[in-house]
Design a protein around this nucleic acid. Sequence first.
DNA 1: CCTGATATGTGCGATGCCGAACACAGTAGT
DNA 2: ACTACTGTGTTCGGCATCGCACATATCAGG
Lengths: 252, 252
Amino acid sequence: MINPLENKLLNVLPLESKGRIFTDLNLIHLPLGKVIYESGQDLEFVYFPADGIISLFYITEDGHSSQISAVGSEGVVGITAFMGGGSTPYRAEVQSAGFFYRLSVTAMLNEFNLVKRVRIMLLSYTQSFIAQMAQTAACNRHHSIDQQLCRLLLLSMDRMENNDLTMTQESIANMLGVRREGVTEAAGKLQKQNVITYSRGKITVTDRKKLEKLSCECYDVVKNETDRLDASLPKLNLPRNNAPCYPKEMPI
Amino acid sequence: MINPLENKLLNVLPLESKGRIFTDLNLIHLPLGKVIYESGQDLEFVYFPADGIISLFYITEDGHSSQISAVGSEGVVGITAFMGGGSTPYRAEVQSAGFFYRLSVTAMLNEFNLVKRVRIMLLSYTQSFIAQMAQTAACNRHHSIDQQLCRLLLLSMDRMENNDLTMTQESIANMLGVRREGVTEAAGKLQKQNVITYSRGKITVTDRKKLEKLSCECYDVVKNETDRLDASLPKLNLPRNNAPCYPKEMPI
DNA sequence: CCTGATATGTGCGATGCCGAACACAGTAGT
DNA sequence: ACTACTGTGTTCGGCATCGCACATATCAGG
């Protein structure tokens, strides 16, 4: 069996929780483009990316789309499961093929309600997710396609292992909510400046520093938010004194 | 004492919770334009709007802004309090003067952790909040100023009692993240079509039906989401066993 | 090798929005 | 009544992006 990158949220799960969800947790491989949630659909599973990326899209009536977030091993897809809604208002699609841990909504919800530390962990991620959405929204509104492309590439790289990305200009256009031709132009500029090379859906970043310079502030903001979350997670996993892991639950 | 509209979330709080937070809850009046959170600031209080509106803004480095959500009596400002972050990534500003219930973050967090029903209620709202943000983000990207103005006016009306809104074209421009002149033009069109009348910061909607027709789908989506939440809240408040229903008025 | 599908490149006019500058009109203060 | 300020109306050039049409390049399969 391939040894995938672990998911950071799953990693810090208390041992007892891991034990409980064990039978409900599956490691599966999902191909590029696979749609795991359709907008408005009830959700059955949540997904913890290991070495793949899932992209969340909002789609308007007239068919235009916008990416609202990209989730890698730092997060989970399907926060709706524990947030109270039965269905997601957006589409979730595999942006980068790879392995994902799949857990049933009921098991997820059960752990969420049972263990305070699991709750804290998931809500902390949700908070980070919200911040990313806000940033993306503002970026969509105020920054050029050139800048947004840089941001997108950088964020995708951070969620991958290497400098090679698998995404066509068409798919990038859908994420940014712009025309494909706009992406062609922006990508062409980057290639001329020797920042990236690409061909038929394969993009290689050759000068990351420069890419960061050309990007808008939004990349830094999202990255800092992700790092902040990363840094706060291990604390949740410390053994406390010798008290039981999670104490007083109000049975209500 | 003025009898403000009650806040819908506070209304469905279990009686025991109401009792506990009693001493920490204040009813205060906030004037138009008052900034209650600055971006990045640690938060001390959460706010439950009674008859006012609070607007959440994201502000970019170059000074551009975008509204990411408007919160009325259906919600609460400061979800960060129970989501794990200590600071908000956005600015919160009073969009419509009025009364607000103010609660300390510690009291809020305590109830959140102690009572499952409070948690469900607040997370359900957060879910609705996220959906609104996503919608706003997509709207910013894909719809015209004209359409967005209609959406903004409708959503503001829903959160107020009447057809009169207090907002200048300048402040609207900040919310939509566009130029003031753009708003002048869009508002001028609406006035010519006898949909609204306005003068120096007072806007009166005279033909709501038409306004809805001119708006993009985004208004409907956000409204449905808000209504869905509204409808789900009472269920949380069902009397258990044969416990009595408690009065609707918060003693304060 | 040919064919069809996918991915990318390019050109063009149209347009919605921007940025700036300025004029004008209500409103408030003294 | 005068002044200062705030809110609104208007204009004009500029530009990023759009929508469309079409050309080219690369790849996959029979």
